[in-house]
Amino acid sequence: MADMNVLKEVLITGNGDKLTELVQSALDEGVNAADILNKGLISGMDIVGEKMKNGDMFIPEVLMAARAMGLAVEILKPLLGEEGAAMGKVIIGTVKGDLHDIGKNLVAMMLESAGLEIIDLGVDVPPEVFVENINKMKPDVVAMSALLTTTMPMMKATVDAITESGLREQIKIIIGGAPVNQSFADEIGADGYSPDAGSASQLAKEYCNS
Protein backbone atom coordinates (compact mmCIF):
# COMPACT_ATOMS: atom_id res chain seq x y z
CA MET A 1 0.00 0.00 0.00
CA ALA A 2 1.32 3.46 -0.86
CA ASP A 3 3.18 5.05 2.02
CA MET A 4 2.79 8.82 2.06
CA ASN A 5 5.85 9.19 4.23
CA VAL A 6 8.02 7.53 1.57
CA LEU A 7 6.48 9.80 -1.01
CA LYS A 8 7.32 12.85 1.10
CA GLU A 9 10.88 11.67 1.64
CA VAL A 10 11.44 11.15 -2.07
CA LEU A 11 9.95 14.57 -2.81
CA ILE A 12 12.35 16.18 -0.33
CA THR A 13 15.34 14.53 -2.03
CA GLY A 14 14.18 16.05 -5.33
CA ASN A 15 14.24 12.76 -7.23
CA GLY A 16 11.57 13.48 -9.85
CA ASP A 17 11.82 10.12 -11.64
CA LYS A 18 11.41 8.14 -8.45
CA LEU A 19 8.59 10.39 -7.27
CA THR A 20 6.58 10.02 -10.47
CA GLU A 21 7.01 6.23 -10.23
CA LEU A 22 5.68 6.27 -6.69
CA VAL A 23 2.75 8.50 -7.60
CA GLN A 24 1.85 6.27 -10.52
CA SER A 25 2.00 3.12 -8.42
CA ALA A 26 -0.10 4.76 -5.70
CA LEU A 27 -2.72 5.58 -8.33
CA ASP A 28 -2.53 2.02 -9.65
CA GLU A 29 -3.22 0.80 -6.14
CA GLY A 30 -6.35 2.91 -6.12
CA VAL A 31 -5.22 5.75 -3.86
CA ASN A 32 -7.27 8.87 -4.44
CA ALA A 33 -5.39 11.53 -6.48
CA ALA A 34 -6.42 14.31 -4.10
CA ASP A 35 -5.03 12.33 -1.16
CA ILE A 36 -1.71 11.86 -2.95
CA LEU A 37 -1.61 15.59 -3.63
CA ASN A 38 -2.61 16.78 -0.18
CA LYS A 39 -1.25 14.13 2.16
CA GLY A 40 1.86 13.35 0.19
CA LEU A 41 3.06 16.13 -2.09
CA ILE A 42 1.77 19.32 -0.48
CA SER A 43 2.57 17.97 2.93
CA GLY A 44 6.09 17.13 1.69
CA MET A 45 6.56 20.65 0.33
CA ASP A 46 5.53 22.03 3.72
CA ILE A 47 8.50 20.15 5.14
CA VAL A 48 10.71 21.57 2.39
CA GLY A 49 9.55 25.07 3.33
CA GLU A 50 10.25 24.41 6.97
CA LYS A 51 13.69 23.00 6.21
CA MET A 52 14.50 25.99 4.07
CA LYS A 53 13.41 28.34 6.82
CA ASN A 54 15.64 26.50 9.28
CA GLY A 55 18.65 26.47 6.97
CA ASP A 56 18.53 22.71 6.43
CA MET A 57 17.89 23.04 2.68
CA PHE A 58 19.37 25.56 0.28
CA ILE A 59 17.95 26.90 -2.97
CA PRO A 60 19.31 24.13 -5.25
CA GLU A 61 17.62 21.43 -3.15
CA VAL A 62 14.40 23.47 -3.00
CA LEU A 63 14.42 23.94 -6.78
CA MET A 64 14.87 20.20 -7.27
CA ALA A 65 12.05 19.39 -4.86
CA ALA A 66 9.76 21.88 -6.59
CA ARG A 67 10.62 20.36 -9.96
CA ALA A 68 9.82 16.87 -8.67
CA MET A 69 6.55 18.19 -7.29
CA GLY A 70 5.71 19.69 -10.68
CA LEU A 71 6.34 16.39 -12.48
CA ALA A 72 4.14 14.53 -10.02
CA VAL A 73 1.32 17.07 -10.24
CA GLU A 74 1.30 16.68 -14.03
CA ILE A 75 0.31 13.03 -13.52
CA LEU A 76 -2.38 13.91 -11.01
CA LYS A 77 -3.89 16.91 -12.79
CA PRO A 78 -6.26 15.03 -15.13
CA LEU A 79 -7.58 13.04 -12.18
CA LEU A 80 -8.19 15.91 -9.82
CA GLY A 81 -11.73 17.15 -9.65
CA GLU A 82 -13.10 19.69 -7.21
CA GLU A 83 -10.98 18.16 -4.44
CA GLY A 84 -7.84 19.17 -6.25
CA ALA A 85 -8.86 22.76 -6.71
CA ALA A 86 -6.32 25.35 -5.61
CA MET A 87 -6.59 26.42 -1.99
CA GLY A 88 -6.23 30.05 -2.92
CA LYS A 89 -5.01 32.43 -5.57
CA VAL A 90 -1.90 34.59 -5.40
CA ILE A 91 -0.68 37.33 -7.72
CA ILE A 92 3.07 37.78 -7.52
CA GLY A 93 5.56 40.17 -9.11
CA THR A 94 8.74 42.18 -8.68
CA VAL A 95 7.87 45.86 -8.50
CA LYS A 96 8.50 48.45 -11.19
CA GLY A 97 12.12 49.37 -11.84
CA ASP A 98 13.44 46.10 -10.41
CA LEU A 99 14.51 43.27 -12.72
CA HIS A 100 15.52 40.75 -10.07
CA ASP A 101 13.58 37.56 -10.10
CA ILE A 102 15.24 34.79 -8.11
CA GLY A 103 13.45 35.58 -4.84
CA LYS A 104 10.15 36.11 -6.58
CA ASN A 105 10.46 32.91 -8.60
CA LEU A 106 11.38 30.86 -5.58
CA VAL A 107 8.41 32.18 -3.61
CA ALA A 108 6.13 31.49 -6.60
CA MET A 109 7.43 27.94 -6.77
CA MET A 110 6.89 27.33 -3.06
CA LEU A 111 3.39 28.80 -3.19
CA GLU A 112 2.43 26.72 -6.17
CA SER A 113 3.84 23.64 -4.48
CA ALA A 114 1.74 24.48 -1.44
CA GLY A 115 -1.37 24.07 -3.56
CA LEU A 116 -2.04 27.70 -4.40
CA GLU A 117 -2.78 29.05 -7.85
CA ILE A 118 -0.10 31.49 -8.95
CA ILE A 119 -0.40 34.36 -11.37
CA ASP A 120 3.16 35.49 -11.99
CA LEU A 121 3.31 39.00 -13.41
CA GLY A 122 7.09 38.82 -13.81
CA VAL A 123 9.54 41.60 -13.06
CA ASP A 124 9.40 45.38 -13.46
CA VAL A 125 5.64 45.39 -12.79
CA PRO A 126 4.02 48.84 -12.56
CA PRO A 127 1.37 49.49 -9.87
CA GLU A 128 -1.39 49.78 -12.47
CA VAL A 129 -0.63 46.27 -13.74
CA PHE A 130 -1.00 44.89 -10.22
CA VAL A 131 -4.34 46.72 -9.91
CA GLU A 132 -5.54 45.58 -13.32
CA ASN A 133 -4.79 41.95 -12.49
CA ILE A 134 -6.35 42.12 -9.03
CA ASN A 135 -9.50 43.40 -10.69
CA LYS A 136 -9.47 40.70 -13.30
CA MET A 137 -8.16 37.66 -11.41
CA LYS A 138 -9.66 38.24 -7.93
CA PRO A 139 -6.73 36.85 -5.93
CA ASP A 140 -6.66 36.25 -2.18
CA VAL A 141 -3.08 37.46 -1.79
CA VAL A 142 -0.77 39.84 -3.62
CA ALA A 143 2.96 39.17 -3.13
CA MET A 144 5.53 41.80 -4.05
CA SER A 145 9.29 41.51 -4.26
CA ALA A 146 12.10 44.10 -4.44
CA LEU A 147 15.84 43.61 -4.25
CA LEU A 148 16.90 47.22 -4.45
CA THR A 149 16.50 49.99 -1.93
CA THR A 150 15.72 52.28 -4.82
CA THR A 151 12.66 50.23 -5.74
CA MET A 152 11.31 49.87 -2.21
CA PRO A 153 9.22 53.06 -2.60
CA MET A 154 7.51 51.36 -5.54
CA MET A 155 6.08 48.84 -3.07
CA LYS A 156 4.39 51.68 -1.24
CA ALA A 157 3.23 53.17 -4.54
CA THR A 158 1.69 49.81 -5.42
CA VAL A 159 -0.06 49.47 -2.06
CA ASP A 160 -1.36 53.02 -2.47
CA ALA A 161 -2.59 52.30 -5.99
CA ILE A 162 -4.43 49.21 -4.77
CA THR A 163 -6.00 51.21 -1.95
CA GLU A 164 -7.04 54.02 -4.30
CA SER A 165 -8.65 51.52 -6.64
CA GLY A 166 -10.91 50.34 -3.82
CA LEU A 167 -9.55 46.78 -3.94
CA ARG A 168 -7.46 46.83 -0.76
CA GLU A 169 -10.05 45.22 1.50
CA GLN A 170 -10.44 42.21 -0.81
CA ILE A 171 -6.84 41.04 -0.56
CA LYS A 172 -3.88 40.53 1.73
CA ILE A 173 -0.54 41.99 0.66
CA ILE A 174 2.78 40.39 1.54
CA ILE A 175 6.25 41.66 0.70
CA GLY A 176 9.77 40.25 0.61
CA GLY A 177 13.28 40.94 -0.66
CA ALA A 178 16.72 41.70 0.68
CA PRO A 179 16.25 45.34 1.69
CA VAL A 180 12.78 45.08 3.28
CA ASN A 181 11.71 43.99 6.74
CA GLN A 182 8.65 43.82 8.97
CA SER A 183 8.83 47.47 9.99
CA PHE A 184 8.90 48.53 6.34
CA ALA A 185 5.88 46.29 5.69
CA ASP A 186 4.07 48.01 8.56
CA GLU A 187 5.13 51.43 7.31
CA ILE A 188 3.72 50.97 3.81
CA GLY A 189 0.54 49.25 4.95
CA ALA A 190 1.29 45.70 3.80
CA ASP A 191 -0.26 42.87 5.79
CA GLY A 192 2.83 40.73 6.10
CA TYR A 193 6.54 40.29 5.46
CA SER A 194 8.49 37.09 4.89
CA PRO A 195 12.25 36.75 5.16
CA ASP A 196 12.39 33.62 2.99
CA ALA A 197 10.35 31.55 0.55
CA GLY A 198 9.40 28.95 3.15
CA SER A 199 7.88 31.56 5.45
CA ALA A 200 6.18 33.26 2.52
CA SER A 201 4.47 30.02 1.64
CA GLN A 202 3.19 29.56 5.19
CA LEU A 203 2.01 33.14 5.41
CA ALA A 204 0.18 33.06 2.09
CA LYS A 205 -1.54 29.82 3.03
CA GLU A 206 -2.67 31.31 6.32
CA TYR A 207 -4.09 34.32 4.50
CA CYS A 208 -5.82 32.17 1.90
CA ASN A 209 -7.39 30.06 4.65
CA SER A 210 -8.50 33.04 6.75
Binding site: G97, L99, H100, G122, V123
Partner: peptide
Amino acid sequence: IRFHDDIMPDIDRK
Protein backbone atom coordinates in the same frame (compact mmCIF):
# COMPACT_ATOMS: atom_id res chain seq x y z
CA ILE B 1 21.79 45.73 -20.13
CA ARG B 2 19.15 48.09 -18.77
CA PHE B 3 20.32 51.59 -17.94
CA HIS B 4 18.33 53.78 -15.58
CA ASP B 5 18.55 57.36 -14.44
CA ASP B 6 18.32 56.65 -10.74
CA ILE B 7 19.80 53.19 -10.19
CA MET B 8 22.77 51.11 -11.28
CA PRO B 9 22.69 49.45 -14.70
CA ASP B 10 21.53 45.85 -14.51
CA ILE B 11 21.22 42.74 -16.64
CA ASP B 12 17.98 42.66 -18.64
CA ARG B 13 16.68 39.37 -17.27
CA LYS B 14 13.77 39.43 -19.68
